[in-house]
Design a binder for these strands. Sequence first.
DNA 1: TAAGGCAACTTTTTT
DNA 2: AGTTGCCTTA
Length: 749
Amino acid sequence: MDVTHILDPLNPAQREAVTAEPGHLLVLAGAGSGKTRVLVHRIAWLLATREAGPWGVLAVTFTNKAAGEMRGRIESILARPVGGMWVGTFHGIAHRLLRQHHQEAGLPDGFQILDADDQLRWVRRVMRDLDVDEARMPPRLVTGFINARKDEGLRPDHVDAAGDHGQDGVLEIWRAYEAACQRSGVVDFAELLLRAHELLRDDPTLLAHYRSRFGHILVDEFQDTNTIQYAWIRLLAGETGLVFAVGDDDQAIYGWRGARVENIQQFSRDFPGVRVIRLEQNYRSTGNILAAANALIAHNAGRLGKDLWTAGSHGDPVQVYSAYNETDEARYVAGRVIHLVEGGDRRDDIAVLYRVSAQSRAFEEALLSAGIPYRVHGGLRFYERAEIKDALAYLRLVANRHDDGAFERVVNVPPRGIGTRTVDILRGTARAEACSLWAAARRVLAAGGLGARAEKAVAAFVDLVDGLADALEGLVLEHQVEAMLGTSGLLEHYRNDKSDRAQTRVENLEELAVAAGVFRRGETLLPVELDPAASAEESAEPATGAVDPPRSALAAFLAHAALEAGEEQAGEWDDCVHLMTLHSAKGLEFPVVFLCGLEEGLFPHQRSSDDPNRLEEERRLCYVGMTRARRQLYLTHAESRRLHGAEHFTVASRFLREVPPDLIQEVRMRASVTRPAFQRGGVAEPRPRSRPADDGGGLRLGQRVAHPKFGEGVVLTYEGSGHHTRVQVNFDGAGSKWLVLSVAKLEPL
DNA sequence: TAAGGCAACTTTTTT
DNA sequence: AGTTGCCTTA
């Protein structure tokens, strides 16, 4: 097969990685150096040269998006669908293994997945059963503890409770939680990984099968792997599997959730003959942006070492703007966006990045009042919305009557007269009989242990779910969802609700039926190949039968909903400015980036400032943010910021000082800007830069002004200096106008 | 049982 | 400041 089209677009280092002889490979890929490209082309190369068949390839990522992109790009390079190859997230692949071998893994056929929110509810319930005071032991800490241990590959028995009362209590809850999950046939996210690992570890036949199958294991974002993921790769690779790991230690920003950058170094120790290839040519950013980012990250110790360079031009200097508060900061950004868009940029090309989500508010307000469309990324996702989870809970009950979490969630939603009192009785019975709530409900009904009213209500609920299960039989998935929405009374419940939020809920529920239809028709990316017969020769699977067992569309849809929370909003069509946290910006790039809130305490965050390791992670986060920018990078900070209600004076972030001054251009308020006098002395550190003194105009950002023709308005931003100073004013009546300050007769109010 | 009021808490997020 | 969970009252 002709491979020139696979190799031609690559630079020498990339090509070296893509065409490397069989062996373990570690690709240290700097930001914007073509990390994904190398991964994708490597797979295409393996397939094209017959080094591997699709069946022999396993590619793992962290997000569904990355997995989908990877598969798409491979197929587009090879210009055909590739069946048999496993491309997915760690969780998706673990899930697939467990489904296929649920018996060996000790799970029921229709086991379901708990998302973080479900897990918390389950832990709460267990704690209630055990009579543990939530005030003394916050459930969040408990789930955090459990997940952290599981991510380290540990079970309760492995954890030493030696004399620590607190931990002793957690272990008891943990054990009870595990028992409850096992009884109901549900599995949390961490359990997927842990159990898949144990499955392979403890079943030599299975392990041998998968080891012989997957000759090539490729891992994206290797610096983000945690202990169990690393162990899983190592186990699966064995002596024969070849691992192609791609990562960047400078972009490790998930230590706080168990990721271990050290896995990159560990890799070279655990796998014999690892070859290391560095990708240091950056294709994304201008020279100045790159130099700034390089200088910043150089302040971290113990890096593997990489120096990004670009063949491109220096570009503009990094712009630094000192705002006097967060409102001013947001106004500045909005003003620049207007300017950029007037200059021909798409809004879609612009991103505003910040450390904490709460910062989005100021930007949203400023953009809103400037009439600039924007989109905030990373809010509540579709399948995480309460009403959607309610609907899914009904479906889960239909699929598995013993799912206690689902039972409790909807037993009284919509309200049908089953209050805490009644549920307590059911819970008591369930505990006494060691059975599910569903079974308990039946027993209590049979034994007549309830008052007449409660009994009627519980009987009605039981009949409802049973009837629902019957009614759904034989229906196509989306009709099942519709029927459930109708019969359960959920849709009507929200229709009757006159609050404005209810309207959205109704729409979301209706959207769920649509999503089910899309899912069934396979228009969604499935973790399972839809086209196993893509190529007969490729589909010939070696030995042991591992065809995915047939599953009901409903069960598959439920797993999909748990594993892929979906995009937060459906409105991607618009040309919008992107607002997101630095964490969610990883992996993305934008021509123009505003990196905001560079203040001590906020970024680096207060809660990371005492620990040098966490501080370095903050710096990497800043590095990630800066390297998202292609052409223009703005760094902003505010001298005063309202946080949690109170006003705080701030000190500019050390990260600002770590960028060499010659790469920076101070954006000054070239027009007359005055700050309220009480704020002048409040800056904790005298800044070397000087802000031009008030030159008599008496105008400041946000100030209300009057114009003879346009009436009253608010000053949004400034541009230019001296006689050329232009001011943008948002007039109450006439909208937003640019005026030349020396000509327009603006009167401060 | 359901709705409304008050106190406590606020890093980052995927699966 | 704004949400979230808990507790009171009708």
